[in-house]
């Protein structure tokens, strides 16, 4: 079952500055991966490389640029598994939306397509060992994330 998360933040910087921060490789590496191969071309197959991962080998996440509209929106697919070219059914879709507001920019991000409930038993066990919240709390959390997705 696919799911979505949506988050947003207000940034005291003009949209073009925020746009460069999320699309230019030399800026992406300052907030995300250790190396970034991203070009603003629809269908561009690039990569995000994480070298500071706990495993010895760098982790290469392949991405495919889906769509972009300068200073307004940018989206790409990101494969679940390292080394796989992302496409429908094997990847998450990440969508950024930039909204110019007085004094800055509202940046929204939505991640969808995560097949979160197909966790391995090990992942579920780890979670079961860690978690200490009741069901009611979880329903509240789901509601909160759902509410954050409501159109303004």
């Amino acid at each position: 079952m696919p799911m979505i998360i949506g988050r947003e933040i207000f940034i005291e910087a003009p949209v073009d500055v925020v746009w460069r921060a999320i699309t230019e490789p030399d800026q992406i590496v300052q907030w995300f991966s250790d190396e970034a191969d991203v070009e603003l071309k629809t269908g561009y197959e690039g990569a995000l490389i994480f070298t500071e991962h706990s495993s010895k080998e760098p982790v290469v996440a392949h991405i495919t640029v889906q769509a972009f509209e300068p200073d307004r929106s940018f989206s790409y697919r990101w494969a679940y598994e390292p080394g796989v070219v992302p496409g429908e059914g094997n990847s998450v879709l990440v969508e950024f939306v930039l909204i110019a507001e007085t004094g800055g920019t509202r940046l929204r991000v939505a991640e969808s397509g995560l097949d979160l409930l197909d966790w391995s038993q090990e992942q579920k066990d780890d979670y079961a060992a860690d978690h200490n919240h009741g069901w009611a709390k979880h329903i509240g959390d789901l509601g909160e994330y759902a509410a954050s997705k409501q159109p303004a």
């Binding site: 799911m3 933040i9 500055v17 800026q27 995560l114 979160l116 979880h138 329903i139």
Partner: peptide
């Protein structure tokens, strides 16, 4: 599983967005 996965994914994006904000 739904709640936990949503939490984890949301936290990751909160950290990344905070870093984008600092950078921009």
């Amino acid at each position: 599983a739904a709640a936990q996965a949503l939490n984890a994914a949301a936290s990751r994006w909160d950290r990344r967005l905070a870093a984008i904000k600092r950078l921009a």
